[in-house]
Computed example of a mutant assay.
Amino acid sequence: MGKILLMLSLFTLSFSSYCQVKIVRGQVTAHEEIPLVGAAIYVKSTNKVYKTDSLGHYRIQCSIKDKITVSANGFIKEEIKIRKKSKYVLVNLKLKSGEENKDLAMGYVNVADKDKLYAIKAIDDDEMDYSSFRNIHEVLTGNFPGLQIQNGEIVIRNTASFTGDNAALIIIDGRESTMNSLENIATSDIKNISVMKDASASMYGSRGANGVVIVSTKRGDK
């Protein structure tokens, strides 16, 4: 009888812990900083769907050990586990490959006019075997038309420099980096590469005037 009561007590404690309600806030973006408008956040425990506002922000009600699924037209959906201490959750969605997905992303107003994605090309490792290339130079020049490597710098055609320097800005796993660091990445470790220019790169200010090369690595997820 004592064991049964103990098991019931533990079950009740576990159940009440799972069902404890909390408020979680956050933001849904693309390419680290572009806010996604009207992105859907599905909460598993309640089957409720919330939407992001004009700045990509959201506020949801969920349990302390919940799961949410974040999705937006033209982007790869992502599932996130809510932890006990989670108060603010930033979700960065990846654009699906193909021109039709760029059109889809903008057609459903997920991306504001000022953050147009027409100048972005993104390639994920699920559509390309990066390890088949000998180095990052081959990856970039072989898959991104208009991109060249000159004097140890990445140069993207038709970008306007305000500083006299033609080098594109390099971002690796969300941080500004150097060509030397980029060259040290093994091609088998590449998860995603995106090239931005024009309006889509303007969020980086004058630093993005020559375009931006964004690289996500597999170790960056760890």
Rank of each mutant, 00 (worst) to 15 (best):
V37D: 01
G38A: 04
A119P: 11
K116G: 08
S86C: 10
Q27S: 07
L169E: 09
N135I: 09
M128A: 09
T159K: 03
D115I: 03
M1H: 12
P35G: 11
L93V: 02
G164Y: 07
Y42Q: 03
I76A: 08
Y130E: 05
I171C: 03
A112V: 06
Y108T: 11
S177V: 03
D189E: 15
V109A: 11
E100C: 11
S97A: 10
V24M: 00
L182V: 05
L104A: 15
S200F: 06
S161P: 02
V195D: 09
V109I: 07
T29S: 14
D124Q: 13
N184P: 01
N92L: 05
A168I: 01
D53L: 02
G220P: 04
S86H: 10
D165Y: 03
L5V: 14
M106D: 02
I60M: 00
K3D: 08
L90H: 14
S202M: 08
N143Q: 08
K44V: 02
M1Q: 12
V109Y: 12
A209D: 15
A39W: 00
F11M: 12
N166A: 08
G205Y: 06
T217H: 07
I34A: 05
I120D: 13
D66W: 02
A30C: 10
A186Y: 14
D115M: 05
T187K: 09
K3S: 15
S177Y: 03
S206L: 07
G26V: 02
I214N: 11
S54P: 00
S200Q: 13
G211E: 02
G220E: 09
R134Q: 15
L140M: 11
K114L: 05
A112P: 07
M1S: 14
Q20C: 03
G211D: 04
N210C: 14
S194E: 14
V89K: 08
A72D: 02
F75W: 00
I136L: 13
A105E: 06
V21A: 13
L8D: 12
E176L: 01
T217L: 10
D129A: 15
I80K: 11
S17H: 09
N101A: 08
L10E: 07
G2F: 12
M7S: 11
M203P: 01
L104S: 13
S86A: 15
L169K: 12
